[in-house]
Design a binder for these strands. Structure first.
Lengths: 187, 187
DNA sequence: ATCCCATGTGTACGAGCGTACACAACGGTC
DNA sequence: GACCGTTGTGTACGCTCGTACACATGGGAT
């Protein structure tokens, strides 16, 4: 019987949980599914995590596959002189056009957080991360507004089945940016 | 044994399903929960609806409690001379501040539709209804952008636990409206 | 009045789930 | 080398679920 005293066990369970959520959604995140994916016995997942919620939070918190990560790696924020609206619209398109796992993971997290308070801090963190990375190029209130607009645009594309409309996104984001510093009060 | 040959039976099951989703979320929508809520035997729900999906679609399609309904009844769109951004921000606040059942229902529907194709037409319909009612006051592309912004703003409030920030919403919507007719290409 | 079939009901089955818990194995301690 | 507690495993319990299906019922056709 191999793999006794496996120090990486806990980590491998988290990794497996992320894959399970990506493949079957949060509704499909069960001890048994994770155990099978991680190739560990069922008891192992219950041993390392007190309940499903704990496993779920651990998995989603680690899955830095949200838009914030993609955005940070895109270079769209790097050049202060670049067209921010166009850059964001382009990155959104790449995110939605590529492997949908990250996209689904992010919005699935949002959904679950509506009903499960345990997940709300994680969802809030993802939003905050995106907004904070945008403050490199604009004020905090505008950053929040941009995040809201981008989330809404993504939802529209995902739910209506309409292909992502990059010119529409660019123009919408351009308008949100146009008033930066003008009078949004809160941050 | 009362209520034999009950022609309104099917309708009452749908009504009960809406209440169940409002109370326990889509994840809590089960034949048994609906049957209990409607005060009908279990077999009755399976008799009238082939599967859970069919019941769910019927329920959500009928639940005109989305933002579109609230907006239409608010009068914010009535006066062509009124401040549209301020009106929308105010209605959003009322919607989010009142009974949260409708709000949760709408976003639960949105996000559940991501995984369940059967729900996608319903979610798309809700978005389209909102956008169409806005075209009374602006062009279609701007209407779509407003819907995106409002959805994003609501999600931020719901997921971060932050109270709804009406000035922020007003300013964001004002910016989206500021460029109306300027160059958003698609609709 | 009789019959028939759409409508409605109760129950039971098998599957999947979270969790608890008794037991096995191993590594550090003396 | 013996001991013991941490770590890991297998199984079993109780629950809820969707669905199937045999049976009851009553209105409409005859």
């Amino acid at each position: 019987m191999p793999r006794r005293h496996d120090p990486a066990r806990r980590q491998r369970i988290i990794d497996a949980a992320i894959r399970v959520v990506g493949a079957k959604g949060i509704a499909g995140l069960t001890h048994r599914a994770v155990a099978a994916e991680a190739d560990v016995p069922l008891g192992s997942t219950t041993y390392h995590f007190a309940g499903l919620d704990e496993l779920m939070v651990a998995a989603l918190r680690q899955a830095n596959e949200g838009f914030a990560t993609v955005l940070a790696g895109s270079g769209a924020l790097a050049d202060p002189g670049s067209d921010l609206a166009a850059g964001l619209a382009r990155v959104l398109g790449e995110w939605l056009g590529g492997d949908r796992t990250g996209v689904e993971l992010e919005y699935e997290l949002y959904l679950a957080a509506l009903r499960r308070p345990a997940l709300r801090p994680v969802a809030a963190e993802w939003m905050r991360d995106t907004a904070e990375s945008l403050t490199a190029r604009t004020d905090p209130a505008t950053a929040r507004a941009l995040v809201a607009a981008m989330d809404g645009i993504c939802l529209q594309s995902l739910l209506t089945g309409t292909p992502y409309d990059e010119p529409f996104a660019r123009e919408t984001l351009r308008r949100v940016l146009a008033g930066a510093g003008a009078g949004a009060t809160a941050g």
